[in-house]
């Protein structure tokens, strides 16, 4: 890989990570406001679909690991758990990349939904597994899940489009170095 390609790749990673950071902040602010209603949006799926689908293996792994650790660092989830789950999802998506259309927003949307569901379930079982049916926890979890998936359904396509547009505006080619791996 030439130096210019490497720089372009690094640029892509930085753009994706910055986008994730801003999106994370946005979700945080949204949650800050929703606390009055005791509703929480949990949207890790938002951060995994784009790099897994659009980036090469190594950049995608790097993006997902960093995003995962960023999430782990700010939540009581045991350190490395999100990064681990992100890598597993990345692995699964990578296996089906030949049948998934990168340009199709719907595919990314579905992956985000599925990933979100998986991580949501994992965290729920980890933290509330024993108490799920106690004292209204199930209803609260269910409502949080419904709201999270609905919010993701709305935000994900917009978010993916914004990243793509940003990359385009910065005159970067998302799939430029893909040919070299084929």
């Amino acid at each position: 890989m030439t130096n210019s390609k490497q720089i372009a790749l690094l640029g892509l990673i930085v753009i994706v990570l910055i986008s994730h950071g801003i999106a994370n902040l946005f979700v945080m602010e949204l949650n800050n406001s929703l606390t009055t209603l005791s509703i929480t949006l949990f949207l890790p799926g938002l951060f995994i679909a784009f790099p897994s689908l659009n980036l090469q293996l190594y950049p995608a792994i790097l993006c997902n690991t960093i995003t995962g650790i960023l999430i782990d660092a700010t939540t009581p989830i045991p350190m490395g758990t999100s990064a681990f789950v992100f890598l597993i999802v990345q692995l699964v998506v990578f296996q089906f990349r030949s049948v998934i259309k990168k340009n199709n927003l719907y595919h990314g949307w579905v992956i985000a939904q599925i990933t979100n569901f998986v991580i949501f379930s994992f965290v729920t079982l980890y933290f509330n597994g024993k108490y799920l049916f106690e004292d209204g926890i199930f209803i609260r979890t269910l409502l949080d899940f419904i709201f999270s998936q609905s919010a993701l359904a709305i935000i994900a396509p917009v978010y993916f489009t914004i990243i793509k547009k940003t990359i385009a505006v910065l005159r970067m080619d998302l799939y430029a170095n893909e040919l070299s791996h084929k």
């Binding site: 602010e29 960023l70 660092a73």
Partner: peptide, 20 residues
């Protein structure tokens, strides 16, 4: 090392929340 990593990633994001 894990704890240091945890702390560093946390501290890295903290200014964002404070700023916000």
């Amino acid at each position: 090392v894990q704890l240091t990593l945890h702390k560093s990633f946390y501290e890295f994001q903290a200014p964002l929340w404070i700023g916000s």
